[in-house]
Amino acid sequence: MAATNVEVWQHATVVDVQDVAAGIRRIVLEPALPKTAEPGAHIDLKVRIAGQEDRRSYSIVDSADGGRRLALSVLKAPASRGGSEFMHTLAAGDTLEVTQPLQNFPLRVGAEQYILLAGGIGVTAMINMARVLKAVKADYRMVYAGRSRDAMAYLDRLREEHGDRLQVHVDDEATSLQVGELVAGADMDTELYMCGPIRLMDAVRRAWTERELPVANLRYETFGNSGWYDPEEFVVRIPRLGIEATVGQGRSMLEALEEAGADMMFDCRKGECGLCEVRVLALAGAIDHRDVFYSERQQHAAEKMCCCVSRAVTSGTGAQSDAVPGRGPAVVTIDVS
């Protein structure tokens, strides 16, 4: 949607911060150049991590008064690359550089039936969508899954707004979401919008494909920051260029390679476009594919990876405790374009 994605940078002032769940802070901004945020919209903003400027994307939870007040909600991620920690330092009166709302996850009005699926902090992308679907009297339900109730933001508000249309699943209450059942409730005219951890989204994608539902009716947005494994430090080598770099827990492989002097090609930085593809020559460990560019077959082949989001890990089972002590960091040997 090129037309709506012209980046207009502006100052924004933090006017309110509030904890809305365990580890989740609601941050309300007043931008200098207000613009109404459509459902599914996000803003990009400049963060400072260890003295360096970086850029992060956050979904807009709600947009009041024609976009004069934009609310975000940020989970302080234990394995954060630093962005969420920075966001949690903000206080009323601070100013930031932010874009006007950008749109990569548009809600289409007019579908027969909708399912909105939110996993954990992914709820931030779905709140505005649910509000609009209610306003246009659409046939929708919102499914909200989380680990524990105290870590699920906006539960009360959603219950109040959507009543029986809200369906809540909580792992530690033994009401975990059954993806098969969820997808069984969709038919050819159902559009499913989802935002959540990659495991959840991947399970939905599989079930969706198995039921042979129209691929274009499954809508999701990924900022490429969720993986199958916890991020670990690993080593990347490009023998042809004589480059060896260590990719810290909080950095991407693309960033580490750029810092090491490699001339890298990339675009979306969220694992969608495939431009940052590198060829894997050798691997000590496994690849944590965090992109949506490769098919399952291609990810299993482990011949290529999207270096903007994907990582190397020592563990082969997914549990960090599984990493063999003393085996050292994973090492991936690659070549680039």
């Binding site: 996850f105 289409r108 691929v215 969608e272 476009c273 949506v292």
Partner: peptide, 16 residues
């Protein structure tokens, strides 16, 4: 609906 349903030379579709 304006959704991409086929993209050349790749096995997946960019969700954007």
């Amino acid at each position: 609906a304006g959704r991409c349903v086929s993209m050349p030379a790749q096995e997946t579709i960019n969700p954007s």
